[in-house]
Simulated scan of single mutants.
Amino acid sequence: MEKIVLLAALIICLITDLKSRKILNIITLPTIAFGLIFNILTSGLDGFLISGKGFLVGLAILIIPYLLGGMGAGDVKLMAAIGALMGTSFVFYSFIYTALIGGVIALLLIIKTNGLRNSIKSFFFNVVLFRSNLGSIILSKNKESSVSFPYGVAIVLGTLCTLVWGGF
């Protein structure tokens, strides 16, 4: 049952994030509540602890990137909802897959935006020669040259990877 709710929430969040770059509270908050209630009804106090810890881990994983302006609050709430629904280890593995997928997407977008030659040149000067801050490659303050994408896509894909393959 919880997998059906998870899949429904993921599909809706993927669509809304792609269309409007928003992950809606009307999806994440009821998913959090459902996860808590479902886990309590099926496992009692242990279910409450599973759901509560999962919620907190999901929230904690993305709160710093959110506070630094790297992502929206909807992304954080979606990860917290995944944790509340599926538990601590599931949300942790989802985050690992999400980070890997998000990194690949970001790298491809940087290469597409800056061109392969400029990206390699920038990487060489910034990393190999320590000429500049590595963050300037990814987190540019100039809005025109910065690369961004709806991170909910990576969260959905990472969570689906966890559903299919589980942990490591």
Rank of each mutant, 00 (worst) to 15 (best):
F38E: 09
A9F: 06
K3M: 05
G102Y: 00
S119F: 15
L108A: 14
F123A: 10
G135H: 06
G52Q: 10
F38I: 05
T42W: 10
F95C: 14
L100K: 02
V147W: 04
F168C: 01
F130Y: 07
V153N: 08
F38D: 08
I63P: 04
I96A: 14
P65T: 13
G103P: 11
N25C: 07
I64R: 04
G44W: 08
L109T: 06
G158N: 02
G47Q: 05
F34S: 01
A99F: 12
A8S: 13
N118A: 15
I120L: 14
S148W: 05
L107G: 07
K121Q: 12
I120Y: 11
I11G: 07
V128D: 02
G158I: 12
C161H: 06
D46T: 12
E144F: 04
L78K: 00
P150F: 03
S140D: 09
I23N: 10
S146L: 05
S51L: 13
S136A: 03
K121P: 00
G158K: 02
I11F: 13
L108N: 08
L100Q: 03
A84W: 09
I82L: 04
G52M: 13
L6D: 07
T162V: 08
G70S: 05
G35L: 10
A84F: 12
L160H: 01
K141Q: 12
N126P: 00
C13D: 04
K77P: 04
I82C: 03
L14T: 01
S132A: 08
F38C: 04
V57M: 09
F123Q: 02
A80I: 08
F130W: 08
L56N: 04
L109M: 14
V156N: 01
E2T: 05
S145T: 15
K3R: 12
F125C: 03
T42I: 08
G70K: 06
R131K: 15
K143I: 14
I23F: 09
A154W: 02
L24P: 00
K53G: 02
I137H: 09
A9S: 14
I32R: 07
F92V: 14
G103V: 02
I32F: 12
A8L: 15
G69Q: 05
I15L: 15
N133I: 07
N25M: 08
I64P: 09
G103R: 06
S146Y: 02
V5M: 11
T159Y: 00
G69I: 09
A84Y: 07
A81Q: 01
I155M: 01
G152N: 11
L67K: 11
V153F: 08
L160R: 00
I12R: 02
L107A: 15
E2V: 03
V5F: 12
A84L: 08
V5L: 12
F38Y: 14
F92W: 14
I101L: 10
I155P: 03
A84V: 05
V57F: 11
S148H: 06
I105R: 10
I37Q: 01
S20E: 13
G115F: 03
A81T: 01
V91G: 13
L78G: 03
N39A: 01
P150S: 03
V147P: 05
Y97V: 12
N25V: 08
M86P: 04
D75M: 10
S20P: 00
K22S: 12
G158L: 03
I120D: 00
